[in-house]
């Protein structure tokens, strides 16, 4: 992990990439019985291949909703999302399942591991159904857990659990990695180890990565930082130099 090679990789990928996601006028309204909550009020966004984007915003700004729609977990109320030219907003349930199965990797704030399965088996849950998966051992090796293959989640620390979740997400060789507050439940030291794992995957595998967080400090490692507030993009900024996770502090 040295700084110059990272920069090189970023330039190479962003320069040649076609957009992975194209989002236009995306809205989402939650119907909560008597009241309606407008979570997204018209989002326009693009994500290039190999790009690492951080979505920043406070609680309730619509980050998770946007991520869920990008990941095919939730449906939009209006607007359009295309993934490599395919319209996700018109996809059927079956198509969305296939999309999630073969193209997207998810990392959640609370890891969402299966407690009854070991690290290796948690990854195998994905590799068993994917098209061109890595070996679970390799995926775990990438996140530095080669030594803990047969441990159950309860026997691992929070950071280690989150790294299993990352291994699980990348093991299918996804085109895009979506991370919802991946360090939200971790202390800063452990959080950095997790971010290093994400950064390495993005750099070495060229996987387009979206990280959502309310932690401004994490924004330093992104190619691009998108600020959300109240369901709208209020600001977009580009980092000329991506910071190394180990240089981040919070």
């Amino acid at each position: 992990m040295n700084g110059s090679s990272t920069q090189e990789a970023v330039h190479k990928k962003t320069g040649t990439a076609c957009p992975v996601f194209q989002v236009q006028g995306l809205t989402k309204i939650y119907d909560m019985g008597e009241i309606q909550v407008q979570a997204l009020r018209g989002i326009d966004l693009e994500l290039a291949a190999g790009e690492l984007v951080v979505l920043l915003g406070p609680s309730g700004s619509g980050k998770s909703t946007l991520l869920n729609i990008l990941g095919g977990l939730d449906t939009a109320s209006g607007g359009q999302v295309t993934y490599c030219g395919k319209d996700l907003t018109r996809a059927t349930e079956k198509e969305l399942t296939e999309y999630r199965r073969f193209h997207v990797g998810f990392v959640f704030q609370f890891y969402n591991l299966i407690p009854s399965l070991t690290a290796r088996e948690n990854v195998a849950v994905v590799t068993e159904i994917a098209k061109n998966p890595m070996r679970p051992e390799d995926a775990l090796g990438l996140v530095g857990l080669a030594e803990r293959l047969d441990h159950f989640p309860a026997q691992l620390s929070g950071g280690e659990q989150q790294r299993i979740a990352i291994a699980r997400a990348i093991s299918k060789n996804p085109e895009v990695l979506l991370c919802d507050e991946p360090t939200g439940a971790l202390d800063s030291q452990t959080g950095i180890v997790v971010l290093e794992a994400l950064e390495r995957v993005n750099r070495e595998l060229g996987t387009a990565t979206v990280i959502i967080t309310h932690n401004v400090d994490i924004a330093g490692m992104a190619d691009r930082v998108v600020h959300l507030s109240n369901g709208l993009i209020v600001e977009t900024s580009r980092n000329v130099i991506r910071k190394q996770p180990k240089d981040l502090k919070w």
Binding site: G71, L73, E93, K94, T97, E98, R100, R101, F102, V104, G105, F106, F108, F110, N112, L113, I114, P115, V125, V126, I129, A130, R168, A169, K172
Partner: peptide, 16 residues
């Protein structure tokens, strides 16, 4: 619930 959510997020279908 959350395990089910995770399984679906990683591509398991409703049927699975």
């Amino acid at each position: 619930r959350e395990q089910i959510a995770a399984l679906k997020a990683i591509g398991y279908s409703n049927f699975d």
